[in-house]
Amino acid sequence: MHNDQEKVVEIRGLVKSFGDNHVLKGVDLDLYKGENLVVLGKSGSGKSVLIKLMVSLLKQDEGTIKIFGIDTAGLNLKELNKFRLRIGFSFQASALYDSMTVRENLEFPLVRNVKNLTKKEIDKRIEELLDAVALPKTINQMPSELSGGQKKRIGIARTLILNPEIMLYDEPTAGLDPVTCIEINNLINEVRERFKTSSIVITHDLTCAKQTGDRMAVLIEGQFNSVGTFEKVFEEATDQQVKSFYDYNFIK
């Protein structure tokens, strides 16, 4: 089904260990333009490590990561920074700068990376994004005054302010109540429509996976064993671990 589509991410044979802790043992993964790919896996299975490798927050031991056709291992710092601006990273704990207001949080990456913006243009862009995440009223609040769900939204807005082509969401619904979860899932789908992003959504929440994902990939024992649509991965699952993951998460 994807043969005619452009690949934006191509990962081959990715290996990453921390000492004796062999986290990724040969990961292959493709992300096609415009799709939402959900990465599932137990806590500690290396999901975060995988996307951190993609933006060079960590360095792989072996394997290649090609994003937009660029091999990330060969980049110098300047090239890497330019490349990083094309990727949005939404952190698990939101990672809002807690000494800055919401406004300053959004302004900080913008004014440092886009030169010669007028005050008006900055204000407009910030308003636009707060609008997109439906939180225009929080503009002068501190992160400590926001709820978990609001923090996630502001974190996503901050990432979107530089117009990334790829979004990486690290457990966007972790620690949120079910209603807020659904709101965030909707936001992820809206972001794709509005900002034309291709996304990887990391989660261990199957509702989130089903709602946001075009394809699923299940990370087990440092590898992706089953990749495909939700139905294919779970309803036809033969792998015992995939099955148990499904049974565990789903109340049938």
Binding site: N81, A95, Y97, D98, P109, R112
Partner: peptide, 20 residues
């Protein structure tokens, strides 16, 4: 403590990935 908590809450990583 300030930089430590920024490290723990991934604020330092967040700067890094936005090319700061």
């Amino acid at each position: 403590a300030e930089i430590g908590s920024m490290n723990v809450t991934e604020q330092i990583d967040a700067m890094e990935v936005s090319a700061i």
